[in-house]
């Protein structure tokens, strides 16, 4: 089937089998490998991207459901050479170690802050419960999101 999407401000029209997932379009067809796959059951959040401005798990969305949508991935949030404030805050606060969960975590965190820019630490913890990190214990991720919401 034909699927048309706008990914990181670039229009794509792709012919894919009906059982293609959005995550597969991004990784396998567009080579945007910053979107990661960490589970099969839509829990870990490594694959989170924005679809029409909202964070979603791209491994649980069919390409067909994304037809006509605007999609933003981790590769699309920096403004030219200037990092997104959330990216900066993750680096400043050592909010990542192995980096595998990081793209999904950053995309979730951006959506979280965009929907409420006065988050408490506890609200950040609750708001990130769709993203697993096995390295950081989340402590520095919470710090980073608190810092980023001041900049965003």
């Amino acid at each position: 089937m034909a699927v048309k999407l706008n990914v990181n401000s670039v229009e794509h029209t792709l012919e894919v089998p009906s059982n293609t997932l959005l995550s597969e379009i991004l990784r396998d067809h567009l080579n945007l490998t910053g979107t990661h796959i960490g589970c099969d059951t839509s829990q870990c959040g490594a694959c989170v991207v924005h679809m029409d401005g909202k964070s979603i798990k791209s491994c649980t969305v069919l390409a067909a459901q994304a037809d006509g949508a605007d999609v933003t991935t981790i590769e699309g949030i920096a403004n030219g050479g200037e990092l997104h404030p959330m990216q900066e805050a993750f680096r400043n606060n050592h909010a990542l170690q192995c980096g595998f969960c990081t793209p999904g975590m950053i995309m979730s965190a951006i959506d979280l802050v965009q929907s409420n820019d006065k988050l408490s630490a506890q609200e950040i913890r609750e708001g990130l419960d769709g993203n697993f990190c096995r390295c950081t214990g989340y402590h520095n991720i919470v710090k980073a999101v608190l810092e980023a919401q001041e900049q965003m």
Partner: peptide
């Protein structure tokens, strides 16, 4: 329900 991403879909 679920998490933010589940609630968004």
């Amino acid at each position: 329900i679920g998490d933010n991403q589940v609630r968004n879909r």
